[in-house]
Design a protein around this nucleic acid. Structure first.
Lengths: 111, 111
DNA sequence: GGTATATAGTTTGTAAGACAAAGTAGTTTG
DNA sequence: CAAACTACTTTGTCTTACAAACTATATACC
């Protein structure tokens, strides 16, 4: 059987949501960025509890996908890295949220 | 920096949700199982579009975690594998859904 | 001045695991 | 009786998330 065989049915609960966002660490980072205009490294680190290495590498992947912009400046002679969602990133996040909600919505009809 | 440094702040958007459920394939399988009492292999295959191999291996992992039960019988001389959520699995799914909703909820306050 | 400590990150090594492809076991069809 | 189909399970590979190690600069201590 191949996955494309599923075209046959009309209303399958699909699993085609954005893996880049779905990954927990990035999901937390993106949901934090979504509610603000921008956030810096130290803030996100304190806020999420993610290690420095993970923030760095996950943000690099999000930047590669053009979901976030990374800006490096200096504040008080110290490096300061500021992250922000791009329009693409915002749109992708909204779409992702819709996918998740659609999947979880009808499972919360009962309870 | 270690992750435990984050204990300091009061209200961080945490990322401690159940990876076993979070994985897309398993999330789809579990959300399908959640709304019914039980479902068989063929039904889930058609419904989700997942390949046989993936259903098999993911269900094995869910069984190992005692989130689902796997029952093998014969129907019309053919093997028939039936899956169902356990109480533990149901509870874990509810908790997972709450975690996700909590994370995504305040990001949908604006829009 | 030099060396220890802190801050703000990036790079790297490894171990886990998701996926498709290949394999197994039995059944039906030509 | 062999080819094809059904209903799965096992295996091999490739990705990737994570922590640990590293880099670079700044400040504090002696």
């Amino acid at each position: 059987m191949t996955p494309s065989d599923s075209e046959a049915d009309g209303e399958s609960r699909e699993l085609d949501f954005d893996r880049l966002i779905h990954e927990p660490a990035r999901l937390v980072l993106m949901s934090n960025l979504y509610v603000v205009d921008e956030a810096d490294f130290v803030f996100l680190s304190r806020r999420t509890g993610l290690t420095a290495g993970n923030i760095s590498s996950h943000m690099a992947r999000l930047e590669a996908a053009e979901y976030v912009t990374i800006e490096k400046t200096f504040a008080d002679k110290r490096p300061r890295t500021t992250y922000a969602l791009t329009k693409t990133g915002r749109a992708a996040f909204v779409t992702y949220r819709e996918h998740v909600n659609a999947l979880l919505a009808d499972s919360s009809a009962d309870q």
